[in-house]
């Protein structure tokens, strides 16, 4: 089979899930009225329709569409990150280069499939260049913290996010022409894990798992979410180059990375005194609130796949 026949089946499946969620929200509202939780649920489901629609549109456009979509997501994420980072006027050039040179160049390198450079461009060259640019402005106040925060923001918002479309560049024998499905597998499993953790937490959640970081995450939500997302990953083996047990292991790794990524990003939000990174996606918060788990899962998924399945 090719992506041409599998992708429509996958998206039809997602549409069925969203239809069920939409219907559930409608039934809950009829039964219990407009409570804030139900209202939030319905807003989230509506936003999911939009997000799935955007991803489906990008898939129809092919590799270029997916690369541009994630480049735009990186832009929105970096904008949210820098907004909450206390930069100074002396960072202006470094920030301009980060947004208008580093970000497009990283995605261009992914687009031309130059693995040798896109894998080290930000961790090596940008890591060295941006502190030089900042130093040339002569502002030494909190210098170390400023360059470290900008580099961390670029690693998270650009480097890690770009590893989702970078999956399209992996040469995998016997998987030619089906790379978009690898992107779909990663995104579906990680996002389903977030949703399932939320659902299990709402149904059975008792014990808080990390009260200092995230008051809404529970042990029950974590265990139920990770277990059911792993099962989902195994059930999706047919869109991957993996055997069912391998797909399950991959799903387990990316859901765990996603969970801990959510905790890390929550720690930053707590420190900055905000609940959400932004207000871009209604019901969900900002781009980073939606992407935090994908960000931590993508590079690990990429390198595991590259090491064991790519030539």
């Amino acid at each position: 089979m090719t992506a041409g026949s599998e992708a429509p089946i996958l998206f039809a499946g997602i549409a069925v899930v969203l239809l069920v969620a939409t219907l559930a929200g409608w039934l809950l509202r009829r039964r219990f009225g407009r409570t804030p939780t139900i209202e939030n649920l319905e807003t989230r489901v509506r936003a999911w329709w939009v997000m799935v629609g955007l991803i489906a549109g990008a898939f129809l456009l092919g590799h270029g569409g997916v690369i541009v979509l994630f480049a735009l997501a990186s832009f929105a994420a970096l904008r949210e990150f820098v907004t909450l980072t206390p930069t100074r006027r002396g960072d202006h050039w470094a920030l301009a280069i980060a947004f208008f040179v580093v970000l497009p160049l990283q995605y261009w390198l992914v687009g031309i499939e130059w693995y040798g450079l896109y894998a080290i461009f930000i961790p090596v060259y940008v890591f060295l260049l941006l502190p030089i640019v900042a130093a040339l402005r002569g502002d030494t106040t909190r210098f170390m913290a400023r360059v470290a925060e900008l580099q961390w923001g670029l690693m998270i918002c650009v480097f890690c996010v770009s590893h989702v479309p970078a999956l399209l560049t992996l040469p995998i024998p016997g998987f030619e022409g089906r790379h978009l499905l690898l992107v779909a597998f990663l995104v579906v499993v990680v996002q389903a894990s977030d949703v399932l953790q939320y659902v299990w937490g709402k149904l059975l959640g008792r014990r808080k798992i990390a009260p200092a970081l995230s008051p809404s995450k529970t042990v029950e939500g974590f265990a139920g979410g990770v277990a059911s997302a792993t099962a989902l990953g195994a059930a999706l083996w047919w869109i991957t180059p993996f055997a069912p047990w391998q797909a399950a292991l991959m799903a387990l790794v990316v859901t765990l990375m996603g969970f801990f990524g959510g905790l890390v990003m929550s720690a930053i939000k707590r420190d900055r005194g905000v609940k959400d990174w932004g207000r871009m996606i209604e019901g969900h918060g900002g781009m980073l609130d939606r992407l935090d788990s994908v960000i931590f899962a993508a590079p690990v998924f990429f390198h595991l796949t590259r090491y064991w399945w790519s030539i």
Binding site: V82, T87, R89, A96
Partner: peptide, 18 residues
């Protein structure tokens, strides 16, 4: 809020910030 960080005095390129 924040526009002074987007375009500080004397700079030519605006930084995208919310």
């Amino acid at each position: 809020e924040n526009l002074n960080r987007v375009m500080p005095k004397g700079e030519l390129v605006p930084i995208p910030l919310l």
